[in-house]
Design a protein around this nucleic acid. Structure first.
Lengths: 343, 343
DNA sequence: CTGAAAGCGCTAACAC
DNA sequence: GTGTTAGCGCTTTCAG
């Protein structure tokens, strides 16, 4: 029904080998036959069958993009970057959402063994040792985004510096009692952002008060949740006069919760308490929340580069890239407590 | 390198046909040999190559999931539903983001001609006639989500009823001056939600004042944007004493903008103006915005059912399913103007 | 420059 | 029950 390479060959009065050569730009075809073949191709609306190509060439022209399923904006942006770079190359993106961390090994193992993809992109998930072993053994190219493993290429953001910049911004505004609302410290980004906070405070010769550094034990999303930010902010507000004048939340989503807690107590941001987040989520602009922007689209595109390089040259040394986040200043950290409303 | 069916056959001392039968549960294999084959399979960690299966069986075991790339929560939820149902079946989801409406035909045409997928899911995009023709001609199963075309299966939400319910909710609260902030009326959902609004007002014998019904000419995302809601709300607030006491926004994202405009004018929601949205986006809970919830996960799962049915039986009559949205009441439409803060 | 033929890994029809 | 074989649609030697 659908045209095959044989149909094209027949109508162009050539062998299928020639058709293949034309389509793959193998040069050694005369202008005349090339043109003839091309005409038939477009007349028949012929497109080679990807699976047949895959079988013959031993590659699939597709990659597996794996994300934790709770994901939103961050992943879509990464994805956009990946797709932009990949669509020219005619590589398909197979999407795999992981609902629970425990599923990751089993699910990916399956995919790896089926050699259904040429490479894997793994986002924001710790890679279990067992999985690492399998991937390594199978020599399947894999690049990690927003997570780290020393045996695999990885692309992430400099969270230490991000934390530093965020805190420094608050310091520059004249704040001294600066709190940090963190997530679960088993999360690497959380740990690093905290490190940045510490460094900035030390560089400014400010003491870090234990009562102002909150973290969670929550397992759920590693504590990167709005509720979490809300609860912790409530905690801080209980300090009364000793409460902070500024808060650095480890993520925007937590910052949203913090803003709600502040408002609920009848306080205003930034008049009473300045707030800065991290991630620069979609709604932070509208909300007026100052935040740290990560170059997601760029990260996505670079991810593709790494993957492609590794396809070409599997022996490449492991590559780790760190992007610098950018400070985006908005109303939530206006210098003097102007009366602004954050909605 | 990777085990093939021949390796398994050899080690199990059987023919490849038998291995194939075992793996495909073709029954006519003795318990003894079946067991032997299975042992070798697991010993070798053998997995059949999907592309080889695809070629031999003339199907790909993958579907194309197409979304407008601006997409966020709604699509992820649909997707979650689809994946849930599909992962058991071992069908891959190939993701395709369309950045501009004009690309849709070309991009999909390519995919269709390559018979790389068994079916297509198309989300929230008008399907151009030309594309419809191609898909129909190629007899490629396609199901539309959140959009409509009479020649294809479609799964959507009853927007008319949703609009009716939302408006009725405001009426029940005692409001009479109820405004509607709509999107671009070329969008079918926008048109339908407005229709619901009209019906509810008429049923309640309330006049619809032209000054209270705003729509946009914006092409960008059909006007479903925060800015849009913001601008329109500003418009409404200019009416002074004649301003509405309640607003039905055609989407949550527009409602967010409206809330911002209200706050900026020093007014409070719901004390001065009640607001209801549509979509029940992720942040509407935290924001306290009353909204209309669409059963996205269910829609996703049903989408898969349709697709599978059509794989089995291409001759099936066209199927259109409409889900009823559910009213989720939150602070933004509290009965009496309690003093609440929406952040 | 180009045709023929041998796979790529699997399914399914056909024999025994 | 089970082995054998002919495709599925393409790439890639190998001759010529």
């Amino acid at each position: 029904m659908t045209a095959t390479i044989y149909d094209v060959a027949k109508q162009a009065s050539v062998g299928i080998g020639t058709v293949s050569r034309v389509l793959n730009k193998h040069a050694s075809v005369s202008q005349k036959t090339r043109k003839r073949v091309l005409q038939v191709v477009s007349k028949l609306n012929y497109r080679p069958h990807p699976f047949a190509i895959g079988l013959a060439r031993q590659r699939t022209n597709s990659i597996l993009f794996t994300i934790p399923f709770f994901a939103t904006f961050f992943f879509l942006e990464i994805l956009r970057g990946i797709q932009k770079r990949l669509s020219d190359l005619d590589v398909s993106i197979i999407l795999l959402g992981i609902n629970h961390p425990d599923q990751i090994t089993e699910t990916l193992r399956n995919n790896i063994h089926r050699h259904r993809v040429d490479g894997i992109v793994l986002c924001s998930m710790k890679i279990p040792d067992q999985l690492a072993k399998i991937a390594l053994f199978k020599k399947l190219p894999m690049v990690l985004v927003d997570t780290y493993h020393k045996k695999f290429d990885s692309i992430a953001v400099n969270n230490v510096r991000g934390g530093y910049t965020a805190t420094k911004h608050l310091l520059d505004l004249g704040h001294t009692r600066i709190a940090m609302l963190n997530a679960n410290l088993r999360s690497v980004p959380a740990k690093d952002r905290f490190k940045g906070y510490q460094m900035a405070m030390m560089d400014a010769h400010k003491k870090i008060s234990n009562s102002l550094v909150l973290k969670t034990k929550s397992e759920y999303l590693d504590g990167f949740t709005r509720e979490n930010g809300y609860e912790m902010m409530k905690e801080l507000l209980k300090l009364g006069p000793k409460r902070p004048t500024a808060v650095f939340a480890a993520s925007d989503i937590q910052a949203y919760g913090a803003l709600a807690a502040i408002a609920e107590m009848g306080l205003r941001c930034p008049r009473d308490i300045a707030v800065i987040g991290f991630d620069d989520l979609e709604l932070s602009g509208p909300l007026g929340l100052t935040s740290m922007l990560q170059p997601m689209s760029e990260m996505g595109m670079l991810t593709v580069e790494r993957l492609l390089d590794r396809f070409e040259n599997p022996g490449l040394p492991i590559y780790h890239k760190t992007f610098e986040p950018t400070l985006i200043v908005r109303r939530s950290t206006l210098p003097m407590g102007k009366i602004t409303k954050l909605v």
